[in-house]
Structures are given as C-alpha cells and as structure tokens.
C-alpha cells in the first residue's frame, strides 16, 4: 500500500506501481462534495505531481488513486447455525482494488459458525496482505 504521508514524490518506485514517465490521469476527488478535478502526472524527472486539489486529504487521495487505488472489501459470508444464513463482513483496512475479486473469492470459500460478535476475525491475513476480514455485526446461534 502507498504510505501517502511518507512517500517521497521525487523518488517514487514507478515500477512497483506499473507507471512510467509521462503517465497521467484525470479524475474527480471523492473525499468531500466539492468534487475537485484532479490531474496527476509523472513528470520528465520521474516526479509525481498532483494538481487541482484544495486540501491535504485531496492531495493524498490523488496520489493513492493514481499509484494504487484501494477499496474497502464489503460483502457477506455464509454462516452456519445463525439466525440468518449470511453475515455482513468487511476488511479491517482497504484492499488494493485489483485484488477485490480475489478477496471476494476467499470470503465465498469460507463459512463462519454462529455465534459471532461484531469485530470477530473471520479470515486472517487475507491474500497475505496483512488484512483481516471481520464481522460487521453480532449473529446469535439459532
């Protein structure tokens, strides 16, 4: 994951993020309703530059979304013996967007056992990303 607080924009490991000099992307910042239009570009010296943001959160979002978009994993998991047949789950941290379908597959292969408490870890170290899948609610046994 990109550590946007620490990253040195003059010295980004472009290969790691599958980017090269001259690459650019235009997109809308979705952090607040202002919807600033961002332009992110890798300059001639390999420096990553963000334009169009109005605040720090937008700047950080721009870098993250350009180098490696991340999304929360939100889905349901089968549960045995629960008051409902499925339980809502989420990742405790955002997952790289390109791994979301793989992550869903892992969750679909897993079956939880009631009772479960909100926050219980249902998948440990998802796809070796160091991320957990946790229960979004309590689920009592039938």
């Amino acid at each position: 994951m990109v550590d946007v607080e620490e990253i040195d924009l003059k010295n980004v490991n472009l290969e790691k993020y599958d980017k090269k000099v001259g690459d650019s992307k235009d997109f809308v910042c979705v952090i607040c309703p202002n919807s600033c239009r961002l332009h992110v570009e890798v300059g001639p010296t390999g420096e990553v530059d963000v334009q169009g943001y109005q605040c720090k959160r937008g700047f950080e979002y721009g870098i993250q979304e350009f180098l490696q978009p991340i999304r929360m994993l939100i889905t349901t998991m089968k549960i045995e013996n629960g008051v409902l047949p499925v339980i809502p789950v989420r990742s405790n941290k955002e997952v790289p967007r390109e791994r979301i379908f793989d992550a869903i597959e892992v969750v679909n292969q897993t079956v939880a056992q009631a009772p479960v408490k909100m926050g219980d870890i249902l998948v440990d170290n998802l796809l070796d990303l160091g991320i957990h899948v946790i229960a979004s609610r309590d689920m009592e046994a039938k």
């Binding site: 939100i74 809502p88 989420r90 909100m118 979004s136 609610r137 309590d138």
Partner: peptide
C-alpha cells in the same frame, strides 16, 4: 458499515 452503526446502538 450499516450493521456496525446499528450494533453500537443495539
């Protein structure tokens, strides 16, 4: 998430 928000109140 929605269920988490509800669970806190419950």
């Amino acid at each position: 998430t929605g269920p988490e928000y509800a669970q806190r109140f419950i």
